[in-house]
């Protein structure tokens, strides 16, 4: 029996096709679009509102003393400007919630959507590699999440430049913000995507998957609380250390996702 000549897709073509198909589908899903843009909008509005409110309402003497106690570095600055700077700095942690919530939702919709519509088997019946499909799904969820976070940051920068003080502007342009945006945002997004994929392999209900995946926000919130209470200072070094930790965690989750994302596993074990 002689072998048949068959077309073989290029890996880049497969990834591109899947990414574009995912986005095309996502753009028709109003709920998903809403859930992609709502968290950044809320955080952005809260961030800008807080800086604007601090600019409009000067702190009283007691607040100033509490501020100097919590952040000795701002001692000597104009209290109103210092408060804005502190607020602008603290909002970094809230901005880091965007790359945890948004890609998780997109990844969950992507995988559970495929399971619900039973589109996985025809997809797996093609010569496309499962690794390429996983990469494509990750890219499709990561790119919008990172872009939305960066867009929100850019808008925040412009707003702080407009309504905020010099220390506030310095805070959002500080190395810790820039390192967080360039390092932590992609790493957190990847973590969230992989977590979304892993949860979706075991769960068939989007809301249940979101509730389980929502737990990823807990460490971020905990760091935020620790920061506000003065127990943690999100400085350059912790951000870099966290980035390294996230990188290791990402690598581990990618390895687990690759094991679960095998043709036979998907067809036989995924429920």
């Amino acid at each position: 029996m002689s072998a048949t000549v068959a077309y073989v897709p290029r890996r880049t073509a497969v990834v591109r096709a899947v990414v574009l198909r995912e986005w095309r589908e996502a753009l028709t899903n109003k709920l998903l679009i809403g859930m992609t843009f709502l968290p950044p909008l809320v955080i952005l509005a809260a961030g800008i509102g807080a800086v604007a409110a601090a600019a409009a309402n000067p702190p009283n003497e007691r607040d100033i003393q509490a501020l100097y106690a919590a952040a000795p570095a701002v001692r000597g600055l104009d209290p109103k400007e210092a408060v804005q700077g502190i607020i602008a700095q603290y909002f970094l942690i809230l901005f880091l919630m965007i790359p945890t919530i948004v890609p998780l939702t997109i990844a969950i919709y992507s995988v559970i959507g495929e399971k619900a519509n039973r589109t996985l088997e025809p997809l797996l019946a093609t010569p496309a590699g499962v690794g390429d499909l996983l990469i494509a799904k990750s890219i499709a969820a990561m790119v919008p999440a990172v872009l939305v976070t960066w867009l929100a940051y850019f808008i925040y920068l412009l707003a702080v430049a407009k309504v905020g003080s010099g220390p506030a502007q310095n805070a959002v342009l500080s190395p810790r913000w820039l390192a967080a945006m360039t390092l932590m945002v992609p790493l957190l997004t990847l973590l969230s995507v992989n977590l979304g994929v892993l949860i979706s392999t075991r769960v068939n209900d989007i809301r249940v998957a979101q509730q389980i995946g929502g737990l990823i926000v807990v460490p971020v919130v905990a760091i935020g609380i620790a920061q506000v209470t003065g127990r943690v200072v999100l400085d350059d070094a912790p951000i870099l250390a966290t980035s390294v930790g996230l990188f290791v965690l990402d690598a581990a989750l990618i390895a687990v996702a690759r094991v679960l994302f095998q043709r036979e596993n998907i067809l036989v074990r995924w429920r």
């Binding site: 077309y7 073989v8 897709p9 290029r10 073509a13 497969v14 591109r16 096709a17 899947v18 198909r21 025809p122 997809l123 093609t126 010569p127 496309a128």
Partner: peptide, 9 residues
């Protein structure tokens, strides 16, 4: 989409 996955020119 599937034609692309099957690598059709």
């Amino acid at each position: 989409f599937y034609a692309r996955l099957y690598g059709l020119p």
